[in-house]
């Protein structure tokens, strides 16, 4: 399945784009997606943390992604 991942802040700078399209196996977990991104973009490993959001909620690592999910990589937030 094809996943579209929105990128913000420093994650956008690391990847060099505001959106990433990835080919992923069906029912890929959030943990697997994070591992794949860490391997593909090693600079992500230097971040304090990063989370994955699905449909505007923080997703647990065992969540299985679906093709139409709105997925975003959330680097450390710094609002306020």
């Amino acid at each position: 399945m094809k996943l579209k991942i929105a990128l913000f802040g420093i994650a956008k700078e690391i990847v060099g784009s505001s959106q990433l399209e990835l080919e992923a196996p069906e029912r890929q977990s959030v943990a697997d997606l994070i591992a794949q991104l860490r391997a593909q973009y090693p600079a992500l490993n230097a971040l304090t943390s990063f989370a994955v959001a699905v449909n505007s909620e923080y997703a647990p690592e065992d969540y299985c992604l679906r093709e139409n999910d709105e997925i975003a990589l959330i680097p450390p937030v710094s609002g306020g």
Binding site: E13, L47, T48, A53, I74, V77, G79
Partner: peptide
């Protein structure tokens, strides 16, 4: 809340809390 702050200095910039 997913909001990110980039501080701009006279000689560069940094995404706050990223590292």
């Amino acid at each position: 809340v997913p909001i990110w702050k980039k501080e701009e200095y006279e000689d560069g910039s940094v995404w706050v809390a990223a590292h």
